[in-house]
Amino acid sequence: MKIAVMGGTGLIGSQVVEILRAAGHDAVPHSQSTGVDLLTGQGLPEALKGAEVVVNLTNSPTFDEASPAFFQTTMDNLLAAAEQAGVGHAVVLSIVGVDLVPDLAYYRAKVLQEDILKAGPVPYSIVRATQFFEFMGAVMSWTADDNTVRLPSNPLQPIAAADVAQAVADVSMGAPLRGVRNIAGPDVFPLDELGRITLAAQGDKRTVTTDDSAGMFAAAPADALIAPDDAVLAPTSYRDWLAR
């Protein structure tokens, strides 16, 4: 099966391509570096020629009020080209609880992306994942100085990027869900405690101060960042991942 992977050279995309190829599929990575631009539509017809599935792992370059326009344009271009090419399945990676945090512009933008996909002409699947282990450093950097990291106590259920890639690949190889599959890591942590675990594992002497107004996730309701009851739980624990 030929599968076009948009954003196929990134953190998740490169792993998705590797998994799909190992399973015997013709997975082709596409990105601006390969001449495909979802914002302009450049290279899309060629990238989707003969593809049975398209996986969209591209992301807005910003998390601010400009992000809805990015997802509107890129999804419109992708779905129009996919319909023209006769693609039978479109897969998008989104965020667990994305519809529960309307105060965040980026989350509103991802809801818009999902809604465009649902209303579009191509049978679809949405994979919603919790926050990646790999992004914990960035999350802490938003509210850190030389001595202290301020983090809210919201519960978080992070997941390894490798487990996300496997879940996306599994959905891509199957029939369209015409719905959502939620995936999450096996463990729930208060975000401030997760910060302490991370700093300790890295030998970082900074202290974590609990501040429920600090950072982007402070706007999230208590249940928004953890897996719903129907979620598939991935095998990799955060402590095991840190130890590796």
Rank of each mutant, 00 (worst) to 15 (best):
I3Y: 00
I3M: 10
G7Q: 10
T9K: 01
G10L: 06
V16R: 07
I19D: 07
A22Q: 14
A27L: 02
H30R: 00
T34L: 12
G35Y: 05
L38C: 11
T40H: 06
L44H: 07
P45V: 01
E52H: 10
V53W: 01
L57N: 12
T58Q: 01
T58V: 14
N59M: 12
N59L: 05
P61S: 10
F63L: 14
E65D: 15
P68V: 15
A69C: 02
F71A: 13
F71Y: 15
F71N: 13
T73Y: 00
L79C: 08
L79D: 09
G86H: 05
G88I: 04
H89V: 12
V92E: 11
L93N: 10
L100Q: 15
L104C: 08
Y106N: 12
Y107T: 12
K110D: 05
V111N: 08
Q113S: 12
D115H: 13
L117E: 02
K118P: 05
A119R: 14
P123N: 07
Y124T: 12
V127Y: 03
R128W: 03
F132H: 08
F135W: 10
G137P: 12
A138C: 00
S141K: 14
T143M: 03
A144Q: 10
T148P: 01
T148W: 06
N154W: 08
A160K: 07
A161Q: 02
D163Y: 08
Q166G: 12
A169R: 00
M173Q: 14
R178S: 15
N182I: 00
I183A: 04
V188I: 15
P190W: 02
L191P: 09
E193K: 13
R196I: 11
A200E: 14
R206M: 12
V208G: 07
T210A: 03
S213D: 14
A214S: 06
F217E: 04
A222C: 02
I226A: 04
I226S: 04
D230Y: 03
V232G: 06
A234Y: 08
A234M: 14
P235E: 12
S237I: 06
Y238L: 14
Y238T: 11
R239T: 15
W241M: 07
